[in-house]
């Protein structure tokens, strides 16, 4: 029986042999799991384990299963797990369109077809005509939307949020948060959100796990 969604099966993260985080849980497609906890408790490390980018000295045990497939031994680029950080981290040397093209899979061939996809993505979040812009000239909200679309264009099967809204001011924050959750739900993506902010957790409306320091 294959289970859809993101399953963390007896996931244990060890730092130099000592256990830092242990989790056994499941996030259904379209649902949001919120992870909170004091800083240094290993929230970002948990996300790094799922993206496959744990720093040296860290080790993950257990299995990470995405839509029935064990991805825990796969290279990061083959996991199809999207992630958004607090900073948008748009590639500063590429235009807005270039950033989106970086996310778009090579499967979509031909300049015209790729350009259409990028144009649609920009229109979709109210950024029509922004393709040639320098990312450094965008406002915080605009950058956040580009980062979101860049990630969605890569067709991820799960979404991780690492304090993704912490850099935005209050009004913008609710707006961007709603956008991200709507898009994830529309695509039936399981979402794992790490945050400090109770309002984020409330808006997500899903289950909440609080990591305790060990």
């Amino acid at each position: 029986m294959t289970q859809t969604g993101l399953r963390l099966e007896n996931l244990r993260i060890l730092r130099r042999g000592r256990q830092l985080v242990a989790l056994d849980t499941h996030v259904a497609p379209g649902a949001v799991l919120t992870v909170m906890g004091a800083s240094g408790v290993g929230k970002s490390t948990l996300l790094a384990a799922i993206t496959g980018t744990l720093p040296t000295g860290f080790r993950a045990e257990g299995r990470i299963i995405l839509n029935g497939e064990d991805i825990s031994r796969k290279a990061p680029e083959h996991r199809h797990v999207g992630i958004l950080f607090q900073e948008e981290l748009l590639f500063p040397h590429l235009s807005v369109g270039g950033n989106l093209a970086f996310g778009l899979p090579p499967r979509i061939r031909g300049r015209a077809a790729r350009r259409t996809k990028i144009k649609e993505a920009l229109d979709d979040v109210g950024l029509a005509g922004f393709a040639a812009r320098d990312p450094a000239t965008l406002s915080g909200g605009q950058k956040a939307r580009v980062a979101l679309m860049r990630m969605l264009l890569s067709e991820p099967k799960a979404l991780l949020l690492d304090e993704a809204f912490a850099g935005l001011d209050a009004a913008l924050r609710a707006q961007v948060r709603q956008l991200v959750f709507d898009r994830a739900r529309a695509r039936a993506l399981p979402v794992l959100m790490v945050t400090h902010d109770a309002a984020d957790a409330q808006a997500a409306g899903g289950r909440l796990i609080v990591l305790e320091p060990r």
């Binding site: 680029e77 797990v81 992630i83 981290l89 590639f91 970086f102 860049r150």
Partner: peptide, 12 residues
């Protein structure tokens, strides 16, 4: 984290 993003977008 730029590398993490790039990998998450499928770049080797």
């Amino acid at each position: 984290r730029h590398a993490t993003i790039a990998a998450a977008l499928g770049a080797a």
